[in-house]
Each structure stands twice: as C-alpha cells, then as structure tokens.
C-alpha cells in the first residue's frame, strides 16, 4: 500500500515533537508509517506517544546497535525498511543527525535528497528558505524515492483520534554499519525553558551581556520564551553551545526574536532573520542588527530589559 515513511526521533524516552509534524506533512501525500529505532524494551512506550498523530502504523526496531554504532546502524535499518515497505517518500527531522541519516540513506537507496524543507506539499514538492532566508525555493526529487528533511516547528502538527498499530520488525544490522563505536553519550541538558527551535518567542544574548545572562533569562521566563546566544557568547562559555543561534548553530523562526547585545553578524542573521518580528537592543546605533529590526532600541540592555519587564508585568496585572 502506498505510504510515506517518517523517522520518529526520540531522546531520553520521549518522542520528539518533530514526529507529529512529519506525520502531518506525510499525511498530505499518503498514509504514514513511523519508524522508531530504539534500545531493547523501549519501543512500546515510545510508540504509545504517537497516539493522536497522523501516524497510521509504527514500525519499531529494537537493538543495542543504535546507541553503540550510531548513524550508520540507523541508516542500515532504515534502508532495509524502505526496501520492504517501498514508501513514496521518507521524511526525517532536519537536525544534525537527521540530515546525515538522510544523506547516507539517499545514497544507499538511490533517491534524491532535499534538506531543511519548511513545507512539503501533497505532490511532495518542497519549500526551502535558503541563503539565510533571503530566497524561497521550491524543489522536488526526480530520481528514486525522495528523502526529505524538514525543519523542526516548520508546521503545526494536526491532531487526530488515531491509535496507530505497532509492528515489531526483526532486522539485523550489517557489520559494515558497525565501524564506529560510541563509548559515551551525554545528552544535552534541558532546562525548564522551551526548546529553541520550538519556541514562539526567543530572547538572545550576545557579547553585550558581558557574561551576565540574568536579564535575558528573566525576560525569557516572563514571556515563556527560549534563550538563545550569539557565537561570541557561547565561545566565551557564557551559555551552552546548544543555544547558539546562527549559521553554525540553530536556525529559528519564532513569532518574536529579541536580540540583546548582539551586533548582527551575517552568520548570526543566517539563523534568525526569518523571524516574524525582530527586536534589537544595542548600545551602538550603527550595529547592523538594526537593519533587520522591526523595533530597535539604542540603549543599554541592563537598563532596557528590566524596565520592559516591569512594564509588561504592570500591563498584565
């Protein structure tokens, strides 16, 4: 039966939000099978989290090889599933790992690959935002099974009353996929704040914070926002590198992006310039970030942020 295969990513026992988003896009083209690659004994609890999404059927593979050998083992399992289920497309989350899986899988199965899609139509035509958001490109795969990676939060996941069937597949991983041995794995520490790529509001701090993110964090907490950082701030060790926004960090596209003490280098802009509304707070009136800002404040972030917070709190009460 015609189907779209999605890779349901998960971390520390939780299925990522991207799974429901990919299912929503996949459903436009066909019925959706979700692959869960997990350690032994984990797949049932993970599969249960796909209830009420557009996933029709869960295909789960349990093996220690995924944690031990990483991407190559995952690609090996996926390619075997593609060979037996013959999907019209494979959708994968656009994370560092997802893109690498997609690249290898495309080579293996002989299909074209498109990365960082922000939309996928029912005819599998993709929309991408390229060159730091300065161009919108529509494209499609013309050879083989399309392998498409989709940016997290690109679409709103639709909810259904589905409860998908679960099929456990017994797949053995080829020795050629076990060349790498992972000896230690430290998942990124997740704070209580929303994920950067999922947040509706992002408050970011740069070198201008001088290492003191307390005002940035206080504003983020008031607005239920995620905290981002420029490379200058992550390089200085002021904020974890997983929070870096930009070309070599994350790409975000929230409703509101507030850049505090960030100059607006091209590499930073590449990760945030498709944000709906951009606010900049910077002491330097010539800072390039003001070229992008819908609302710019020439001022000291340590004066502007606390005052804005107080005023917002006053409006709410």
């Amino acid at each position: 039966m015609s189907n779209v295969l999605i890779l349901a990513d998960h971390d520390s026992g939780k299925v990522a939000k991207t799974a429901a988003e990919l299912a929503t896009l996949g459903k436009r083209a066909s019925s959706v099978n979700a692959v869960i690659l997990s350690a032994p004994g984990q797949s049932d609890a993970l599969a249960a989290q796909l209830a009420n999404t557009e996933v029709e059927k869960v295909l789960s593979v349990e093996s220690d090889d995924f944690a031990k050998h990483g991407i190559a083992a995952m690609v090996d399992a996926l390619s075997q599933i593609v060979a037996t289920t013959n999907p019209v497309a494979v959708l994968i989350p656009s994370t560092a790992r997802g893109k690498e899986i997609a690249g290898r899988l495309a080579v293996r199965i002989g299909g074209g690959v498109i990365t960082d899609a922000v939309d996928v139509a029912s005819n599998l035509q993709t929309t991408q935002s390229v060159f730091g958001g300065s161009f919108t490109v529509t494209a499609s795969v013309k050879t083989g099974t399309p392998v498409i990676t989709v940016r997290p939060s690109a679409v709103e996941a639709s909810s259904t009353s589905n409860s998908p069937t679960v099929e456990k597949l017994s797949i053995s991983i080829a020795d050629s996929a076990k060349l790498v041995t992972i000896s230690e794995s430290k998942p990124a520490v997740k704070g209580g704040r929303p994920e950067l790529t999922e947040a509706k509001i992002v408050i970011s701090g740069g070198r201008g914070t001088n290492g003191d993110f307390s005002q940035v964090e206080a504003m983020a907490d008031l607005l239920g926002a995620a905290v981002g950082a420029s490379r200058a701030a992550t390089d200085a060790g002021w904020y974890p590198h997983t929070h870096q926004v930009g070309q070599t960090g994350k790409t975000v596209s929230p409703q509101l992006y507030v850049a505090c003490g960030i100059s607006g280098a091209i590499q930073h802009r590449a990760g945030m310039q498709t944000s709906k509304t951009i606010v900049a707070i910077n002491k330097d009136p010539e800072a390039p970030i003001f070229d992008l800002a819908d609302f710019g404040v020439v001022g000291d972030l340590f004066a502007v942020l606390p005052q804005a917070r107080e005023a917002i709190a006053a409006k709410r009460s």
């Binding site: 009136p285 819908d294 609302f295 404040v297 020439v298 004066a303 502007v304 942020l305 005052q307 107080e310």
Partner: peptide, 16 residues
C-alpha cells in the same frame, strides 16, 4: 522598522 534612542523610557516603549 522603528528605532528609538533610550533616554530613560525605552523599556516601557518596548513593552507598549
């Protein structure tokens, strides 16, 4: 966009 110079009330204007 608009760009304002802080002379003591930019935070409140940002909130507005």
């Amino acid at each position: 966009g608009v760009k304002i110079e802080d002379s003591g009330e930019a935070g409140a204007k940002l909130a507005d």
